[in-house]
């Protein structure tokens, strides 16, 4: 059974595309045949982060509009043989994304035996975002620890439970996962960021992971490499934990506490 997972947030710049790229890569690294689709028509980014921007010939809109077939548009990742990318169009209008067209593309992908279809949603609550979530089975709601991002995630959660195909058909609701990105325990302690408890009190959905704020994310996107592929970094470990939890493993949260004491402080206090 193919699972369709939407990566969404409402607010822009919180890390949806970074998460989509790492999440899809992580699933593929664990052997699952995965495709990641960029729904951000007109502002495509996913291909850049995945390092395939020079290999895009046909895109999602071409397939939706039947100007190309799916196998022409799917880009296979060079390192991960289970990973495919379907880019967005940079030149077309987002209105050309029709619900029938999207449904047809998703059905074709299911027929190709993909285990996971990851839909990278654009920011906002316009056509692209609604199309990305419409046929989803599960949702990763990406949220930064600040009030406006949490508020926008709340709005998106409302739409997931009322506007999607599962809601319309009154089927079992979309499984919602909260992913907190750009989390900085020091700034939480300092009161400049919302804590995990604050966010949970507002959104009240299960937490699937906390991605620490890190320079590595920027470096990774500049290299065209999903952050999960950077060896030994906090961010890649945190994303790997997310994959594990998504697949049903029980993994304790990491990177949520500020280091208590510095090395020297510890020596100093133990000497007392």
């Amino acid at each position: 059974m193919t699972k369709i997972v939407v990566v969404t947030s409402g607010k822009g710049g919180v890390g949806k595309t970074t998460t989509s790229a790492s999440f899809a890569s992580g699933l593929a690294m664990r052997g699952h045949k995965t495709v990641v689709i960029d729904f951000d028509v007109g502002l495509r980014n996913l291909d850049l982060i995945m390092g395939v921007e020079r290999r895009v010939v046909y895109d999602l809109i071409n397939v939706v509009q039947k100007e190309a077939n799916l196998s022409q548009a799917l880009i296979r990742d060079k390192q991960l043989e289970n990973l495919y990318i379907l880019a967005a169009s940079q030149t077309r209008d987002k209105e050309s994304l029709t619900q029938e067209g999207v449904q047809r593309v998703l059905e074709e992908l299911k027929a190709m035996d993909f285990a996971y279809i990851v839909c990278d949603s654009p920011a906002g609550i316009e056509t692209g975002a609604m199309m990305a979530m419409h046929f989803a089975d599960e949702a990763l709601v990406v949220t930064n620890p600040e009030v406006s991002s949490v508020r926008d995630s709340d709005r998106i959660l409302g739409m997931l439970s009322s506007k999607t195909q599962r809601a319309i058909d009154a089927r079992e609701p979309i499984r919602e996962h909260l992913l907190i990105t750009r989390y900085n325990p020091h700034r939480v302690q300092g009161g400049q960021m919302l804590s995990l408890e604050d966010i949970n009190d507002i959104l009240r959905i299960p937490l699937i992971g906390v991605i620490p704020e890190s320079e590595v994310v920027l470096e990774a996107s500049n290299q065209g490499l999903p952050a999960i592929r950077i060896k030994g970094a906090d961010v890649s470990q945190a994303y790997d934990d997310v994959i594990g939890r998504f697949l049903g493993e029980t993994i304790p949260m990491r990177f949520t506490e500020a280091p208590k004491k510095s090395f020297f402080r510890r020596i100093f206090s133990s000497a007392n």
Partner: peptide, 27 residues
């Protein structure tokens, strides 16, 4: 019997309304 999220609106016409969950900011 579910939370009401930001942007959602419910009107109980003619009667009472019971919400078993949070009514978020903006709902």
């Amino acid at each position: 019997d579910r939370p009401l999220r930001s942007g959602q609106r419910v009107y109980a016409r003619g009667g009472d309304l019971v919400v078993l969950g949070v009514v978020s900011h903006g709902a």
